[in-house]
Design a protein around this nucleic acid. Structure first.
Lengths: 109, 109
DNA sequence: TTGACATATATAGATTTCCGATATAACATA
DNA sequence: TATGTTATATCGGAAATCTATATATGTCAA
């Protein structure tokens, strides 16, 4: 694929980075925020998110720190400069892919 | 996911069904047509397409017949009534998903 | 106060999609 | 005759995501 193979499924990483580009969040908060913003289309599972976050951290796209909030220690994730660069690239690829799909679906009979 | 898990990668099956909803085609023709319509964004591999076609046939979404064309026996694929129903459903899901992604990307800062 | 439910993080195993590599074969053209 | 294009096919593997499971805390109602 001219658009990376992982783009489509990989859109989840893009969405997470997008949320973190606005403000630091902890995992559970991302699940709830994505659900709300997408009108319940994205029902991200914890078993999907946490391995994804660890992977993004390993790649240097996110930083993590612990912070108490409402009596609980939570893990907050923060996007790095490299992460912002990655997000821009992924947004461009998503647009390219979505436009191509529209193109194919619209043409013909 | 409210949108089926396979939707996104599964968009490939949708695109193939879309082509066949216009006219019968053989495998290689689908690869070339998808490439052309998407301005080279979709570079579908033979190793992806043929197993996909066999799977769609097993599910009753496609029929196959052999026909000579330009001195060669080619396998033409034809979409079934069930296949058309499946295509409509997938198109709706794609739209739902793509809109949700746009929503998340557009909001916030 | 006890049980149920929501919050919060985490890992292991399984499934699905798709690609790379490889194989075969016919035709076109240089 | 050699090379490239057309055409179909399978196997094995990588990557993304889900299911199931585990753990622990806070909250609220019975």
């Amino acid at each position: 694929m001219a658009v990376e193979r992982n783009l489509i499924s990989g859109s989840l990483a893009m969405l997470v980075l997008k949320l973190l580009s606005e403000r630091d969040m902890y995992g559970y908060e991302m699940i709830e925020t994505l659900r709300a913003r997408s009108q319940n289309v994205f029902e991200l599972k914890a078993g999907t998110l946490y391995p994804l976050l660890h992977g993004l951290e390993d790649k240097g796209l996110l930083d993590v720190y612990e912070q108490e909030s409402a009596g609980k220690i939570r893990k907050y994730y923060s996007i790095t400069k490299q992460g912002r660069g990655h997000l821009e690239k992924k947004k461009k690829e998503w647009k390219e892919y979505a436009d191509a799909v529209s193109q194919v679906l619209a043409m013909g009979v």
